[in-house]
Design a protein around this nucleic acid. Structure first.
Lengths: 122, 122
DNA sequence: ATATGTGCAAACTCTTTGCATGGAG
DNA sequence: CTCCATGCAAAGAGTTTGCACATAT
């Protein structure tokens, strides 16, 4: 059974507050403003738990580890800023995308990532 | 100045032989069939050098480190098999893709990844 | 002969795990 | 009062670097 701790509340709050995929490091930084003693291992454990429960989804963008975002969002893709390394949502998607695979390949999902400079860095 | 060593020749051979993005580990495994003493650090160093020279390009697929493929290929994307973790080329690309970013975002490139089971694993 | 390349091992970074303590129920 | 959760520190995985020796030119 899931307990409602200050740490877990802070982690959930951070992910709800930012509407974009966050790295564990980002969650830690912002979570520590709410619960200063928050530890990195706790962040990793809770992100995994919340993802397993279906409350978060794992986003695998290039260049390292997983990022996490709220799972209740409609289908979308991501923009990754080369300057600040923040990820943003892109809410449009070309629909014929999964038809592109070679014959004999079964596609079950897809990811589309745009690279460049975000509005703040441009 | 670049020297032509057995190790570097083996690494180049492996990348030319397989027509798909390879992980350093894959390059090591196949390279050791040519030069058994080949070490992992040498593979990493040479992949970086060959990429810096423009002979290879770095492919950042989800789920860990960089993969490498020959740089002289035309624009394409990738299929990542969930079963064997091998990456394959997808030679078609929806063209309006970079128009999808929100206003104020400058897109300089994009990556499109299809996930599923490859022809051999399906 | 000279300087780049190699192989090993140690260092680093990111993530996970073990264990004693803390706190929700 | 019980157990799950936390924080720390140690352990793992993947990648990079320092150094002495090997080797291409």
């Amino acid at each position: 059974m899931q307990r409602d701790t200050r740490q877990r509340r802070a982690i959930r709050h951070v992910l709800q507050h930012f509407g974009r995929p966050l790295t564990p490091e980002e969650v830690l930084d912002h979570g520590q403003r709410i619960v200063p003693s928050l530890g990195l291992a706790t962040v990793y454990r809770n992100l995994k738990i919340l993802a397993r429960e279906g409350w978060l989804s794992e986003v695998q963008l290039p260049g390292g580890g997983l990022r996490y975002e709220l799972a209740d969002r409609p289908h979308h893709h991501h923009f990754l800023c080369r300057s600040c390394d923040q990820a943003f949502d892109v809410h449009r998607c070309p629909d014929e995308i999964e038809e592109l695979a070679p014959d004999g390949f079964e596609v079950d999902s897809h990811e589309l990532i745009l690279f460049g400079r975000c509005a703040a860095c441009a």
